[in-house]
Computed example of a mutant assay.
Amino acid sequence: MTENELSYMIIGAALELHKNIGPGLLESAYENALAYDLRDMGLDVIQQVPMPFIYKEIKMDMGYRLDLVVENKIIIELKSIENLAPVHYAQLLTYLKLSNLKLGLLINFNSKTLKEGIHRIVNNI
């Protein structure tokens, strides 16, 4: 399955989740619910994936964690905040670069309509 096909499925699941629950919950609630729905769809989902920081030949375990990784192809960074800031986009792009993955989804569940809270970030490897 391609990244585009996967992202279509993920976005559909996120939209359905938001429709059923709405905004206002903690990020962890959305993370667990979305992970459940994606697994229920038959997708491989890993939560809270440790992301070491590697600089030259030094590997440092800094405590960075990817919210969700789907099929080892797409990183999902979840937020439940009033407004996304430029640093949130940069964070996901950095995670993509460090993991050598191509596509990430930044999803802010604290949006009136989730459509405005979903952003695709592409790492031009």
Rank of each mutant, 00 (worst) to 15 (best):
E77N: 11
I125S: 15
G104Y: 02
K102S: 14
M51A: 03
I76D: 01
L66Y: 09
L84Q: 08
I58E: 07
L17C: 12
E57A: 10
G104Q: 02
Y36D: 08
V49G: 06
L106W: 12
I125C: 14
M60H: 04
T2M: 07
Y8L: 12
N110C: 09
E31V: 01
M9S: 09
L78D: 06
Y64P: 01
I11D: 02
T113P: 00
L98C: 03
L78M: 13
I75V: 04
M60D: 03
A35S: 11
S28A: 14
Q91D: 14
K79T: 08
I10M: 12
K97C: 13
N83V: 06
N110P: 05
E5T: 15
I74N: 07
K73R: 13
P50Q: 02
A90M: 04
N124L: 14
E57K: 13
S111K: 04
P86V: 01
R120E: 09
L105M: 10
L105F: 06
N108T: 08
G42L: 04
E71R: 00
R65F: 01
Y36S: 06
L38I: 09
A29D: 07
V49L: 12
Y36A: 14
K19V: 02
A14T: 05
Q48N: 02
Q47G: 06
V70I: 15
N32A: 10
G63S: 01
K112P: 15
N124S: 13
E27N: 09
S111E: 15
N100Q: 09
L106M: 09
L26V: 11
M1R: 11
P23K: 10
I46Q: 15
I81A: 11
V70H: 07
I58R: 00
L17M: 11
I11N: 01
L93P: 11
S99V: 01
D67L: 05
I107N: 04
E71P: 11
A14I: 02
I58N: 09
Q48E: 07
A13N: 13
Y64V: 05
E116M: 07
G104K: 00
E5W: 12
I125R: 12
T94D: 02
L6H: 11
S7A: 15
I11A: 02
I118Q: 03
A85G: 15
L98M: 09
R120H: 07
K112V: 10
L92R: 09
S7T: 14
S99N: 04
I11W: 03
Q48V: 05
N32E: 00
G42P: 07
A29F: 09
I11G: 11
I107H: 03
M51D: 01
I118C: 05
N83H: 14
L114P: 07
A33G: 14
H88V: 02
N4D: 15
Y30P: 14
Y89A: 08
K59F: 01
V69D: 01
D61I: 03
V122F: 13
H18Q: 03
N110A: 10
Y30V: 03
S28N: 11
E77S: 12
S28I: 06
P52A: 04
K97P: 15
L6D: 03
K59G: 01
E5P: 11
L26F: 10
I75D: 00
I118R: 10
Y55V: 10
L17S: 13
M41N: 08
Y89R: 14
P23R: 13
A14N: 15
V87M: 04
